[in-house]
Design a binder for these strands. Structure first.
Length: 457
RNA sequence: GUCCCCAUCGUCUAGCCCGGUUAGGACACCACCCUUUCACGGUGGGCACCGGGGUUCGAAUCCCCGUGGGGACGCCA
């Protein structure tokens, strides 16, 4: 059997939608799974402004997600050009074939595709106009996910607008023929269009490719499919929030597909190995940002130190955490690694670590009131300061041992020192391990902060 | 309105093709445990086969009809 050739054909709108990302992903996975070719084709028949910039959104998003294309813009290939705006001669040539075969005609300045069969005028109630129906036979769509689908195409349709530009249905089919596409994997919203495409393939005397119409992603609240305006619909949102692309890819792969059994978190090689078209679900999937966030956290937790630090730094730059970025890199690294096991997303990192980089941190009054209302925190703080003044700060455990020894002496618990100590040093009641925090901040800063806090009591 | 697709916990889903399960997992939720705060983690819990008819000894699984959800009906892609 000949090599699988699939294509992802976005139009440069300036946004990269999560649904597009998943369509791209399924195509890419199928290509990688079968050892086939993944083609990127730009459907820019509309003369969009800032075209270059919009194209970069597509390239950047695909690259970020790790989906490299084998043929397409930038990398070339034997069936180029890969931008439809540069393929006009090819469309003219194919149009001529239709004209020669008597399968296209001009009307109202546009060129229409001509269906075969008996014609009759019918008034369409819904569209409030008279249309010409053609007694055609139903088109058969061979779909890897839906099975055999029949749909009757019974009206001629425009293939070239009166402004001379070809329309989507036409260019789509022509390019799939010209680029020798074997499998068309796209959203289910195209299933109804497919009868038009099948008619065109037939008119060109070409066997249609195998179709695979994947389920749509529905918005998490309210009716309908996800659209650009919905929360979480754009890939750039995840980039801005510091999501890991591999987590997003893993999540997206599971939206409408799964390998059977209980497997969820999988390395991409595993997903490629297991992915197949017939295993794709037929029903639409509702987007769930909580599950995505969880997947992202799981990936974040297992990142090696160097990568985590790099990701953290990039996120701090996006968050414009200037104090953190101005700090000594070695110090920043320690702070960030201290936080890694604790945070659920990179997005919260800047706020989570802010007090490490300024003496001017905010003291949470609610926490303060709560902590100061219990026992004798002032005394505990004095004892803690005294102990820390001479404690061995070389490691978390030596600090821990010192505080534990103090607690033993006063017949109290570690917790009695922790809550007030944390409050004095960080202004809050949440954060990384107390001893780790002390160690990274260093004795001088810790003692100074405690003294400063004591002065406010 | 016409046509097309779909239907298991709140959500993503396994199981369905090849009828017999205490209908499994994950996220979310609740409780408890762990614990040095907060998280992570662990244990447990509540939560589903859309409805009605068939077929069958037996239906989540096969068939039909409803209902519900989604999509397409452009000189957009």
């Amino acid at each position: 059997m000949s090599q699988v050739r699939v294509r992802f054909a976005p139009s440069p709108t300036g946004f990269f939608h999560i649904g597009s990302a998943r369509t791209a992903l399924f195509n890419w996975l199928y290509a990688r799974h079968t050892g086939g070719v993944f083609v990127l084709r730009i459907e820019d028949t509309d003369q969009a402004r800032n075209s270059e910039e919009f194209l970069n959104v597509i390239y950047d998003s695909l690259n970020w997600l790790g989906m490299t294309w084998d043929e397409g813009p930038k990398v070339g290939g034997a069936y180029g050009p890969y931008r439809q705006s540069e393929r006009a001669p090819i469309y003219k040539e194919y149009l001529q074939k239709l004209l020669d075969a008597g399968r296209a005609y001009e009307k109202d300045g546009a060129i229409w595709f001509k269906l075969l069969g008996e014609r009759s005028e019918v008034f369409d109630d819904h569209r409030k106009k008279t249309v010409t129906k053609v007694a055609n036979t139903p088109a058969v769509i061979d779909d890897q996910i839906r099975g055999r689908v029949e749909r009757l195409e019974d009206e001629d349709f425009v293939i070239f607008r009166s402004d001379g530009n070809p329309v989507f249905h036409f260019v789509n089919v022509v390019d799939d023929i010209a680029m020798k596409i074997t499998h068309v994997i796209r959203g289910e919203d195209h299933l109804s269009n497919t009868s038009k495409h099948v008619e065109l393939f037939k008119a060109f005397g070409v066997q249609p490719p195998v179709f695979a119409h994947i389920p749509l992603i529905l918005k998490q609240n309210g009716p309908g499919k996800m659209s650009k305006r919905d929360q979480g619909a754009l890939i750039e949102e995840y980039q801005k929030k510091g999501y890991l692309p591999e987590a997003l890819v893993n999540f997206l792969a599971l939206l409408g597909w799964n390998p059977g059994g209980d497997r969820e978190k999988m390395p991409i090689e595993e997903i490629i190995r297991l992915f197949d078209l017939p295993a794709v679900n037929q029903s639409n999937a509702r987007f769930d940002d909580k599950k995505l966030a969880h997947m992202n956290m799981v990936y974040l937790l297992e990142q090696p130190a160097d990568r985590f630090v790099a990701l953290a730094r990039a996120q701090l730059e996006r968050a414009q955490a200037t104090a953190a970025l101005a700090a000594d890199p070695a110090y920043l690294r320690e702070v960030v690694l201290l936080s890694q096991p604790k945070i659920k997303s990179l997005e919260e990192l800047a706020a989570y670590t802010a007090y490490f980089f300024t003496e001017d941190f905010v003291v949470d009054v609610k926490v303060r009131d709560k902590v100061m209302a219990k026992g004798d925190p002032k005394a505990r703080l004095s004892e803690l300061a005294e102990t820390l003044a001479t404690a061995d700060f070389s490691s978390d455990t030596t600090i821990e041992d010192a505080i534990k020894a103090l607690a033993t002496r006063t017949a109290l618990g570690f917790g009695d020192y922790q809550s007030v100590g944390r409050l004095a040093v960080s202004g809050t009641n949440v954060g990384p391990s107390l001893t780790g925090m002390f160690r990274v901040l260093g004795r001088e800063r810790v003692l100074a902060r405690i003294a400063k806090f004591q002065a406010t009591l």
